[in-house]
């Protein structure tokens, strides 16, 4: 290309370079902020399904990366708890079994906790359970290092 034509081309391109770069930065920062928003929301309150109550983390010892005290989960028809990542509530500690327990709701709307033959057991209000037990508002469930508290509102929404 002729020298003076190249000069003009290069001079004009300057602005395009800056524009592109800042667009790239803008999109990247936006992407970061969106992820940040999700991380903050965490699994705190997600009510996409009808919920029968709330199970919250009352106490959580060191060594668990996936839960922390104060987190709340909606109790669904079938809420699995365990170490493996396909559980609804994941506790990544060696002393928690891969499929440890499940909280489920039966046809009458009652909420039960069932131990899935776990190694170290599931504890309800301090007592180890052997068969499915009904849970009431205020009950404490302990699995491994985590203690959950159950809250059932007086008028639970029962959807279809």
């Amino acid at each position: 290309m002729r020298a003076d034509l190249y000069e003009i081309t290069s001079l004009s391109s300057r602005y395009i370079f800056i524009l592109l770069i800042y667009l790239i930065l803008y999109r990247t920062i936006k992407s970061i902020r969106m992820e940040y928003a999700w991380a903050e929301a965490g699994a705190a309150k997600i009510s996409v399904e009808p919920s029968y109550g709330i199970i919250s983390v009352a106490e959580c010892l060191d060594g668990v990366s996936t839960l922390w005290a104060g987190m709340e989960f909606p109790i669904r028809k079938w809420t699995t708890i365990g170490r493996s990542s396909d559980n609804y509530i994941i506790i990544d500690r060696e002393d928690v079994s891969k499929q440890h327990a499940v909280i489920y709701v039966d046809e009458t709307g009652d909420i039960y906790i069932k131990d899935l033959k776990s190694k170290n057991g599931t504890w309800l209000n301090g007592k180890r359970i052997k068969r499915p037990k009904k849970v009431r508002s205020g009950d404490c469930i302990s699995i491994g290092p985590v203690t959950f508290m159950v809250k059932i509102p007086s008028n639970p929404k029962i959807g279809r």
């Binding site: 003076d4 034509l5 000069e7 003009i8 001079l11 004009s12 602005y15």
Partner: peptide, 13 residues
Amino acid sequence: GLLEQTVQRLVFH
């Protein structure tokens, strides 16, 4: 500015 440089080089050579 870009405009000035363009005019000089392409119009006035």
